[in-house]
């Protein structure tokens, strides 16, 4: 019983981190058709900025807010002044975002040094909570709640607001939205910045679990790539389901077949894509 409960909670909390990390990536792909190779850099920079702010101010929420705002501005600048010039040119976009990946990685190494670090948790969420006969880390329980909250807010934003309607329409038919007199370049910049901010938020929320170190950007980007591919490129709902699938598969897989733990995150991806070539919720 406790085996199932603990591994289910582990899987769920990891899945929520995965979701926050990949939601921005899939949103940006859905609208701008960009596979942003530098997405992991936003995770790393967000985590580091939060770390510095929290160390200086001893305030978790302040760290989160400043990381999200700073990385959103960075994302907006990057989209507005570089990516926008390469609209719909898939290959130069890859060249550009990979170039940024190297630059940001080296910049982070330069500023924050290479020693692995962790974003500190909020003090109230330190330690374990006892219930149903088990002791479970409070922060992980909170992550599950926060992840669901982020998912609900994103869904409400996309489905229930005018901005969301514009974004959804833009995903379907960019020209139509343009013809309706909407400033689509502005929407692009905003969505890219928003996606970057989500990754930074992933860095702050996931930072206490995953850590910040040279190469974390790459590791995180790999995880996010797996999630968005399984879920279907461009689908937030797909990313949510895929996060659950990958998070739970990785945990139960590691628990049941420790020898195969190298592949527990990748095997679900291969199976899903073999059965559904566009991912779970993707449009062909």
């Amino acid at each position: 019983m406790s085996f199932w409960l603990i591994n289910a909670l582990n899987g769920l909390s990891f899945a929520m981190v995965l979701f926050v990390l990949s939601a921005g990536l899939t949103l940006v792909f859905g609208l701008l058709r960009i596979i942003n190779m530098a997405h992991g850099s936003f995770y790393l920079l967000g985590g580091y900025i939060a770390l510095s702010v929290i160390q200086a101010s001893d305030h978790f929420m302040l760290g989160m807010a400043s990381a999200c705002v700073a990385v959103m501005l960075l994302g907006a600048a990057m989209q507005r002044w570089t990516l926008a010039r390469l609209h719909k040119q898939e290959l130069p976009q890859s060249l550009l975002t990979l170039g940024f990946l190297f630059m940001f990685a080296d910049l982070a190494f330069w500023i924050w040094g290479g020693n692995p670090q962790l974003v500190p948790k909020p003090a109230v969420l330190e330690g374990a909570i006892r219930f149903a006969g088990i002791a479970y880390p409070a922060y992980r329980l909170a992550l599950i709640g926060i992840g669901v909250l982020v998912a609900v807010l994103l869904w409400a934003l996309l489905e229930g607001t005018r901005i969301g309607a514009v974004v959804r329409a833009g995903m379907d038919d960019e020209e139509m939205v343009r013809a309706m007199g909407i400033n689509i370049p502005l929407v692009f910049t905003a969505v890219f910045a928003f996606g970057a901010g989500l990754a930074a938020m992933g860095g702050v929320l996931g930072g206490p679990l995953l850590g910040l170190f040279p190469g974390a950007d790459f590791e995180v980007a790999m995880l996010a790539f797996v999630v968005v591919t399984v879920g279907g490129l461009g689908s937030i709902r797909g990313a949510f389901i895929a996060s659950l699938l990958v998070g739970l598969a990785d945990n139960f897989g590691t628990a049941w077949f420790p020898q195969l733990s190298l592949f527990t995150a990748i095997i679900p991806m291969v199976i899903v894509l073999a059965l559904r070539p566009s991912g779970l919720m993707g449009r062909a």
Binding site: N10, G11, A255, P258, S261
Partner: peptide, 17 residues
């Protein structure tokens, strides 16, 4: 004996075993 992969993102599954 437990041998998780290098770069295991989440040790929850390892430690709970």
């Amino acid at each position: 004996k437990l041998m998780p992969r290098l770069g295991t993102p989440d040790f929850g599954a390892v430690i709970s075993q």
